[in-house]
C-alpha cells in the first residue's frame, strides 16, 4: 500500500502530531514497511480461525468495589507539564 501525502496528513491529524518535510519522507517509508509486513501476515490462510484478541483463556477477572490506590493531589499534578494548585492546565481547546 502506498502512503501518499493526503493519507499521511490524515494520520498526522488523528495523532495530533506535526512533522517537518524531511521527517515525513522517512516516516512514510517506515509506515510502508509496516504495512508490507502486515501484508505478508495477511497471506496466511486464516479461513475458519476465530480472531485472537485475548492471549489468556477468558477468565472472569474482577476486583471488589473498594477505594484503594488514590494519589495525593500534589503527586497527581507533579507529572503534568503545566498545572496550578488544583488543575492540570492546557491551551484552551474550545471556542466559547
Amino acid at each position: 500500500m502506498q502512503i501518499n501525502d493526503s493519507l499521511f496528513s490524515k494520520l498526522e491529524n488523528l495523532a495530533k502530531l506535526d512533522f517537518q518535510p524531511q521527517e515525513r519522507e522517512k516516516l512514510k517509508q517506515d509506515l510502508e514497511n509496516m504495512l508490507n509486513m502486515v501484508k505478508q501476515l495477511e497471506s496466511v490462510d486464516t479461513e475458519g480461525v476465530a480472531p485472537l484478541v485475548y492471549i489468556n483463556e477468558p477468565v472472569h477477572s474482577t476486583r471488589p468495589d473498594l477505594i484503594d490506590g488514590q494519589l495525593k493531589k500534589k503527586d497527581a499534578l507533579s507529572n503534568a507539564p503545566n498545572h496550578n494548585d488544583d488543575f492540570i492546565t492546557i491551551p484552551k481547546v474550545i471556542d466559547l
Binding site: 468495589d65 473498594l66 490506590g69 499534578l77
Partner: peptide, 21 residues
C-alpha cells in the same frame, strides 16, 4: 463506591484531582 477499572472514589463534589490514581 469506586471507579469502573480502578480504586478511586466516585464521590461527587470533592476537591479537584484528589480522586485519581
Amino acid at each position: 463506591k469506586s471507579k469502573i477499572f480502578c480504586g478511586d472514589s466516585t464521590f461527587f463534589g470533592a476537591e479537584p484531582n484528589t480522586l485519581v490514581s
